[in-house]
């Protein structure tokens, strides 16, 4: 049942790559200021669904959809929706950190500058705030003008989160943000997620069941392009309603 708490509402969303239907009538309500985890085996459609939420799939030739996704009551597929401003509102962090080959400062300043922030003091303020929010400021404040490529993997991922935060999003999509990181960097990203959900709605795709259990409030299980089950995370990992979910999360699937 859709309520006011639901910031994202998906209705009968189908998605196709050419003739191949990869999402089947997805109906999902996502709460604001909560962390929602998508789990499921490779190829189940969770990343495709995630990328639908800020129309990243528009860039793929032959991709098309049917159905609606409403964010704050507005269908993001409507003709009058500006995709650039949609992606500003719905930011994305990828599996592999992808800093630009520029300085730490310029990586974070890039988005605000493109969006028309010109005053250097304003840009500096945004960069510092974003790096602070991403729990990276203390580690990089003395080397803001060094290349971002010199940062560690964990730092680069937090830099990408800072870059996403710099354009003031409302929703942050994370596609396996810690899968390439060591446990210490992973813990920092997870701490960050817990912090960020005070201000942002977060959706995270993860293959790590324990990570989903640790960081998320809600968990959705996808299989073969269908949403099998979605519930509060605590319920999903202690007493899922569907046997398929139970088999998957206990590792007995297949």
């Amino acid at each position: 049942m859709e309520t006011e708490r639901h910031q994202i509402v998906t209705r009968n969303l189908d998605f196709f790559y050419g003739d191949a239907k990869v999402l089947h009538a997805i109906n999902m309500n996502i709460e604001a200021l909560r962390v929602t985890a998508f789990i499921g085996p490779s190829g189940c459609g969770k990343t495709t669904f995630l990328r639908c939420l800020n129309r990243m799939n528009d860039l793929i030739k032959g991709a098309r959809h049917a159905g609606d996704i409403h964010i704050d009551g507005k269908n993001i597929f409507d003709r009058d929706v500006d995709v650039v401003s949609l992606r500003k509102r719905v930011g994305m962090v990828f599996q592999k950190s992808n800093p630009f080959p520029k300085s730490v400062f310029d990586n974070v300043a890039y988005g605000p500058r493109v969006n028309g922030v010109t005053g250097s003091r304003d840009v500096e303020r945004i960069v510092e705030r974003s790096l602070n929010q991403a729990a990276l400021w203390d580690e990089v404040k003395d080397r803001l003008h060094d290349s971002a490529l010199g940062l560690s993997g964990g730092q680069q991922q937090r830099l990408c989160i800072a870059r996403t935060l710099a354009v003031d999003p409302e929703i942050i999509l994370m596609d396996e943000p810690a899968s390439a990181l060591d446990p210490i960097s992973t813990a920092k990203i997870e701490d960050l997620i817990a912090e960020l959900k005070q201000k942002y709605t977060i959706i995270i795709v993860t293959h790590n069941m324990q990570q989903a259990a640790r960081v998320s409030d809600y968990t959705a299980f996808f299989l073969l392009g269908e949403l099998i089950e979605m519930d509060e995370t605590q319920k999903m990992f202690t007493n899922p309603s569907k046997k398929t979910t139970e088999d998957y999360i206990t590792g007995r699937f297949g």
Partner: peptide, 9 residues
């Protein structure tokens, strides 16, 4: 094993 669901219970 970091159990889940039935195994956890």
């Amino acid at each position: 094993l970091q159990p889940m669901a039935f195994d956890l219970r």
